[in-house]
Design a protein around this nucleic acid. Structure first.
Lengths: 326, 326
DNA sequence: GACGATACTGTTAGCGCTAACCTTGACGGG
DNA sequence: CCCGTCAAGGTTAGCGCTAACAGTATCGTC
C-alpha cells in the first residue's frame, strides 16, 4: 500500500480510502490509485484490514452436511445475500455432531467473524458459553427457537411430520410406519409430529417405528423395504423422514414388484429434484431451505449494521406436495 | 493474549507458543495456559497471527458449482486432507464462469492464501497474471494440464467419452447420440472423446449431437427424451454427458413406455448414487472426485511445506461401470 | 569445575492497515 | 470581508500477534 501511495504521490490512507471508502476520494485520483494498484498487482491485505478495523467482513456458517442438498441450498441462499454486501462465508461442516460443532466454533472464532449462522438448536454448553461471551450476533437456521432473545429462521419440523401423517390418514391408511435415520433433532421433531397425529387418531403403534442412526441414503431406503418385507410388517403406508430414503424405497418396490401406492404407500420429506420424476412420483413436503438461508443472512446483516431485525423468530412454513406414491 | 499471560504470570509470547508451538512450552505450564485461556474465553486472533507470521493457514478453493455433487465430493476430499493439518478452506463458487472466477480470485487474494486450488484449466488472462505474480502454489483439479511447471490432478475427460462410446459400439449400437449441456470444458472434452471414437468407426454424424448451455438437471434429461421423440431421431443409444440428465431420461422413458435398452440405450457420466437404483440401472463412468480432492490438497500441502511433490501431473483414472441401461 | 548442549522463557520490533483527529483551501451568505 | 461549512487529503498511533534474537537455568561430560 505504501508503494502504491508513493507511486501515485499520495499518502497511504488515501490508497486505503480509495479501496474501502471510495466516496471520500476525488473521482479521478481514485481511478489513478486503482489503476496503479492493479498494474502493480496490489490487493489489500485482509488480515491487516481486519486487525486495524476490528471488522473481518466474514460470517461463519456451520452446517451438518455438505452431501445433503438441503444444506447446500441453504448455503446458496446465504451466499446470494452476503456476497453482494461484501461479506464472505466461512463454511464449516459439523457432521451432525454438537461436539464437532464446538470444535469448529473454536476454530472459526479465531477469525473474529462479524456474525455466525448455526444449523439447528442443539449445541453443547461450551458452544453456548462461547456464543454468549461474544459480541457478534448469531442466527439459528432450520428449526425455530422459542427462547426469548434468540434469533431463528426456519420451519416447524414437527408440523411437517403432522401434516404428512394427517394426509396419509385422510387417504385412508391406518397402519402407517415411520423410518427415522440420522436421528438429528429435525428428524426427531418430524417423528414427534407423526406420533402426535397418530395418537390423536388412536392409531399410534411403537412397533411401526424404525430408528436408525445411519446417514440417509438411497441405498438405506432400499434396504428398509427389504427389511420391512423380511419382518413381515403390516404397514399399509411408510413415512420416510427424508426424500432420498423414500426414493430408495420406491426403487426397491419397483424392483420387487411391490405396487405403490396400492400395496404400500410411500411418503418422503424435503422434496428433492428427483422426487417429481420417480415412478410413481413421490408425495413429500417441500422445505423452504433457500429462503431460510437468504432470510437468516438478511437478519444477520441487519444485526451487524446495529439494526434490530423486524422479527426475531421467522417461520417460513412448509409446502405439502401430494403426488402418486400415496 | 496479554490478559491471559498476566493471569498465568508469563509473557505474551509464551501464551502464543502454548497455542502455536506447544512443544516449546513445558507441559504443565502449557496446560495451565490453555485452561486459563479457556476459562477467560480467549481464542487467538487469526488476523493478527496471519499479519505477524505472514501465514494465513488458509487455502482458497474455487469450484464451478455447489449443487453438483461431483464438486461437493471433491471438496470433502480437500477438507479431509487440509483440516487435520490445520489449514482451512475458503470456498468460492464460480458458476462455471472464468470471469466470476477472476473476481473471486481477486477477493480471495486479499486473504493471502497459502495455497490455491482451482477447478479446470480454463482461466482468464488476468487470473493467470495474478497467479503467476503470486508466491503461493496453485494446483488445478479435475482436468489434466500439459504445460510444464503447472500442477494438476484429475482424469482424462476425453478418455471417458471415448470409453463409453467404445462400449456402446461393442454392444452393437450404431446410431449413438450425445447430449452435451452446460458446455464447460469437461463436457466438451467428453464430447471430443465421443466424436473421435465414432469417427474412427466411421459412424460420426453431427445431427446426433445436441449442445445446450443450460445446467444439467433431471428435468432437462426428461425433456431431452421428449425432444428426441418429437424430432423423430433415429438414435439407438444416447450418451448423456451427466448422470442426472441420464436419470431424467430413464425416468421419462419409463413414463412414456420406451423400453431401455432394447428400444433406446442410455448412458451417463459420473456415477451418482441414484444411478445404481434406477430401472433399469444406469451404465456410467465413475470419476474419482473424492480422491482428486484429497490428492490435490496433499500436493498443495507438500508445496506449502516447500517440498516438491512426487509428480506434477497426476491422472487418477476412470472406472467404467456397465449396468442394465446399455 | 569449566564447558557446551539442551530446555524453557523473555524482549524488542514490526507485520499492513485504519480510526480518530487534524489541516488546507474553496465557497457562499450575510 | 469575516465566518462557518464542506470536501479532500494528511498525521499519528495502535490493532494483536509472532520472528528473531537473547537470556537463564539445568544437566551431563570431560
Amino acid at each position: 500500500m505504501a508503494d502504491v501511495a508513493e507511486r501515485v504521490g499520495v499518502s497511504a490512507i488515501t490508497v486505503s480510502r480509495a479501496f474501502k471508502r471510495p466516496e471520500l476520494v476525488g473521482p479521478e485520483l481514485r481511478q489513478r490509485i486503482l489503476d496503479t494498484a492493479q498494474s502493480m498487482g496490489y490487493v489489500p491485505n485482509q488480515a491487516a484490514s481486519a486487525l486495524a478495523s476490528a471488522r473481518s467482513m466474514t460470517v461463519a456458517v456451520l452446517i451438518p452436511s455438505m452431501t445433503n442438498m438441503v444444506f447446500v441450498e441453504t448455503l446458496a441462499g446465504i451466499h446470494d445475500m452476503l456476497l453482494p454486501r461484501g461479506y464472505r462465508a466461512l463454511i464449516g461442516v459439523t457432521h451432525y455432531s454438537p461436539e464437532e460443532e464446538e470444535r469448529l466454533i473454536r476454530t472459526y472464532l479465531q477469525f473474529q467473524p462479524d456474525g455466525i449462522l448455526l444449523t439447528g438448536t442443539d449445541h453443547t454448553d461450551v458452544t453456548r458459553t462461547y456464543l454468549s461471551a461474544l459480541s457478534s450476533p448469531t442466527v439459528h437456521m432450520m428449526e425455530l427457537l422459542d427462547e426469548p432473545g434468540s434469533l431463528s429462521v426456519g420451519c416447524s419440523q414437527e408440523e411437517g411430520g403432522r401434516l404428512m401423517t394427517t394426509h396419509l390418514l385422510e387417504r385412508g391408511y391406518r397402519r402407517i410406519g415411520f423410518v427415522a435415520v440420522q436421528l438429528d433433532p429435525r428428524t426427531l421433531s418430524r417423528l414427534d409430529g407423526y406420533r402426535h397425529a397418530l395418537e390423536e387418531a388412536g392409531l399410534y403403534d411403537e412397533k411401526r417405528v424404525w430408528r436408525l442412526p445411519d446417514p440417509s441414503s438411497i441405498h438405506l431406503g432400499a434396504a428398509m423395504i427389504d427389511r420391512l418385507m423380511a419382518e413381515n410388517t403390516d404397514c399399509d403406508a411408510v413415512f420416510f423422514c427424508n426424500d432420498d430414503l423414500a426414493q430408495g424405497a420406491l426403487f426397491q418396490c419397483q424392483r420387487r414388484g411391490i405396487r405403490v401406492p396400492d400395496q404400500l404407500a410411500i411418503a418422503g420429506f424435503n422434496d428433492l429434484p428427483a422426487s417429481a420424476w420417480t415412478t410413481p412420483t413421490l408425495t413429500t413436503i417441500a422445505t423452504p431451505r433457500y429462503a431460510i438461508g437468504r432470510h437468516a443472512a438478511a437478519m444477520l446483516l441487519d444485526l451487524m449494521d446495529g439494526k434490530e431485525p423486524p422479527r426475531r423468530r421467522v417461520d417460513l412454513g412448509l409446502t405439502f406436495i401430494a403426488r402418486e406414491s400415496t
